[in-house]
Design a binder for these strands. Structure first.
Lengths: 228, 228
DNA sequence: TTTCACCATGTTACATACAACTACGCATAA
DNA sequence: TTATGCGTAGTTGTATGTAACATGGTGAAA
């Protein structure tokens, strides 16, 4: 008789992870914009727990560079410095290239279906482009991309760095032409789907790199075009 | 008048970091071998603090993959699986190459002096090669190498992965010819010093990659030569 | 003998009380 | 007006008590 299986993943750990993802999402979608002050007491009250699990999650977020905590002062969402951003993007581009070389994971039928569905959703978004919806799809793209990374440490690094840059677009591009951005993103995802269908994993890495590169390029072009 | 500068790095944070480095060192030098059970109460008693800061540090170590905590069961040092190790090494090699390409930091006179001193120390070690001393020098090498990495995210990734593999040599190679290992390490560091003196940072990345590669190679050669 | 339920013990997760620390307002004096 | 010192409120860091959980042993029943 099998044991009742004590949930290989403990309940406590799942709740902690859910909290972590929730707060990370709030930061990434600018529900908590940079410099927002997060109170341990308020968060604890909102989620119906004590400060202990909140503090654990805030520690993880601080290790990710998403919040900064100072004794006696408070915990606030970190600001975005464009200088460091360029370095992160440069590194992300090189990591993207590695996806195709280091234990690439060719997609199965289910994966390809998910990719096609994502492309369809993005095309459908073209009618009424919303920034937050764009961000959501960008996060989905990231999730599907991670599944193609067979090398665990590489996957972890890519994931970590993605969330360090995920909120930049929403924050620094408040008034750009989101319709065009959505169109570009749709074409890029389409290119990725084609390359995946061919099973050309090396090409997948290059396409991924290109997506990141053009993202950085447009980020700085728009930035310099409209300096505040 | 300048403010008294309340130690930009708070006292609490420094103690926490010191604790983290201490436990990480104990794991890396096999003072805590894999599968060792760490008790929060014992650690708290040893360092004269309560369980809270200990738990915080153990969380960081778990994020690094160095310990594993299960509710109600305990916290133990993670085991080493050679399969995952090969993937980590593969990734580390690619990251090493990037050191020369992504914001390389050419060494100053002080840096070069430190490198030469390290080489001298390693050569001096040749008379009575001790495994733990070897590990110490390997850690020093890592520290000097980090100073040459100008790209912060890359530096962080290299640092994280180093400590995921630092203990492998001591653990899986209990009875190899350490004198020869020290000799090889000395030659490798010498090569690195030469390349640094030339200011050839691209070469530095390649030499670094080679050091990691040969390390992996010898690891598996010895492993297969003496299977238990 | 084997199997299974249960309990005792020790561990981590969580909650809560207290200490350390910061920032800000306000009074005060130059 | 401006600078300065201090007190107070509010925050994070730490200590400690309580709950949830896992593990091993014991003993009874099949």
């Amino acid at each position: 008789m099998n044991r009742p299986i004590p949930n290989r993943r403990s309940r406590a750990r799942e709740r902690s992870d859910a909290l972590y993802r929730e707060l990370r999402a709030r930061i990434s979608t600018l529900e908590y914009p940079p410099l927002t002050v997060l109170s341990e007491n308020l968060l604890a009250a909102e989620f119906g727990v004590s400060r202990s699990p909140i503090r654990q999650v805030l520690n993880r977020l601080e290790a990710d560079g998403l919040v900064e905590t100072r004794h006696g002062a408070g915990t606030m969402v970190t600001d975005i410095d464009l200088a460091g951003l360029e370095q992160i993007y440069g590194f992300r581009m090189r990591l993207a290239e590695l996806v195709g070389d280091l234990d690439p994971a060719p997609p199965g039928p289910t994966d390809l279906a998910a990719w096609r569905a994502l492309k369809a959703d993005i095309v459908a978004l073209h009618d009424r482009p919303e920034p937050v919806a764009y961000a959501r799809f960008n996060m989905q793209f990231h999730g599907l991309m991670l599944d193609r990374v067979g090398n665990p440490p590489l996957r972890e690094a890519i994931d970590r760095l993605f969330f360090q840059t995920a909120r930049v677009w929403l924050h620094n591009m408040p008034d750009i032409d989101w319709a065009e951005e959505v169109a570009i993103f749709g074409r890029e995802v389409g290119m990725m789907v084609q390359t995946l269908e061919l099973g050309d994993m090396h090409g997948v890495g290059l396409v991924y790199r290109n997506i990141i590169a053009s993202s950085l390029y447009r980020l700085f072009v728009y930035r310099h075009a409209a300096p505040d």
